[in-house]
Design a binder for these strands. Structure first.
Lengths: 137, 137
DNA sequence: AAGCAAAGTTAGCCTTGGCTAAATCCTGTC
DNA sequence: GACAGGATTTAGCCAAGGCTAACTTTGCTT
């Protein structure tokens, strides 16, 4: 078990740190899209309840999403996504579904599949996602 | 595709945030253990190079690891782990190897397996790890 | 044994993403 | 049409984990 080349190893960790930076954004746009689809609107209170944080934290995070052009800036209005936000939400949802389906076929229980998918889905390369899609029990 | 129960969904996101908090610590103890095993010692410069950060960042992070009783506090000396640090490193390495082996059997290329494993390994429940161990091409 | 280069540490800054408390806005009810 | 209460935002705090720049320690070389 030789150690990897230092530069190669660094590239891996840098990749993980990059993934972390967009994780929260992806989770937010995905949940906003889901709420709009299911309930017609997404409110700050809903996000706070479902993420398990305070509404102040949601407001803080939304400010970054607005700054980055993912969420419409309409204070005191129901949340909605920009075109870029919708695109990110679609990609996130698709990936989320692939991971869930894969874990279920692997024999993981539904509850645990949903639990693990939430953390897993942000750290999968295109190649691994394809392998998961191709996998049939 | 109904939305999950709000409390259930919150528990998932809280779990991911908890995992994030120990990720860096696990990566550090694992790399320190590997370096000691392969090279006889682990130096701050090695960690910085392999994580892709500055030595100042490593020193900063090591201060937290020392505070938390995972790394021996011996300034200007080669790094070594406490008993707790060794235990965490062993668990991390075992999990890392399970994930790598699983991805390879799934058909993912070695380079991508190493890349994805680095992000993946911190978000797997015991059940999913068992399923990955049991999986044979 | 001195000096210098490399290694390590410290100081001070930034962003992210949590929090509480307080202020502000909106809305339904009377 | 006022107002109470719920929803939202703002202000100010904190820790983690990045950075640069400056300083200290170590250890090699001569």
């Amino acid at each position: 078990m030789a150690l990897p080349d230092p530069g190669e190893q660094a590239r891996r960790f840098i990749k993980v740190r990059e993934a972390h930076r967009s994780e929260v954004q992806q989770d937010y746009v995905e949940l906003i899209a889901d709420l709009v689809a299911e309930q017609g609107e997404a409110r700050v209170t809903d996000l706070a309840e479902r993420f398990g944080v305070t509404t102040a934290t949601v407001a803080n995070t939304l400010a970054r999403l607005k700054r980055d052009g993912l969420v419409e800036d309409r204070p005191y209005r129901s949340l909605s996504l920009t075109a870029a936000g919708v695109a990110m939400a679609d990609a996130s949802r698709r990936r989320h579904d692939i991971v869930i389906g894969f874990l279920l076929r692997l024999g993981v229980s539904p509850a645990v599949a949903e639990l693990d998918a939430e953390g897993l889905e942000h750290h999968l390369s295109a190649e691994t996602l394809r392998a998961m899609e191709a996998f049939r029990g």
